[in-house]
Amino acid sequence: MKKAVIIDDDLGVIEALQAALELWDFEGVGVRENKKILSTLREVQPQLIFLDLLLSGTDGQEVSRLIRSEKEFTRIPIILMSAHPRGKDISTKIDVNGFLPKPFSLDVLQHLIRTVSSH
């Protein structure tokens, strides 16, 4: 089973994504606290990362920089998620592989996973 780490401060979003990912044989592991991000990533060794742009307390941009700073995670696809209308613009400026506007439909999600995974 493939693994994905979902970084979001909202449990509802984490659980919904977990349910959706199951459809395509992904096991989703949620992280809600910043300090646990790297340890979780090391533990899970995911094939895909979902990252919310505006985590409470920390900016998603910083988190992405933090992840990319670790050698072992430089190549893992990151999908940036946001409810921010200009979130897509931001996603093009930082080191992430795709953007998922909140709320989203499963079609879009599936298409996005395929795109970033094949990359």
Partner: peptide, 12 residues
């Protein structure tokens, strides 16, 4: 945010 999970759950 809740709309996001609501939508995903519904679709799942």
């Amino acid at each position: 945010t809740p709309l996001t999970s609501l939508k995903v759950f519904t679709q799942v």
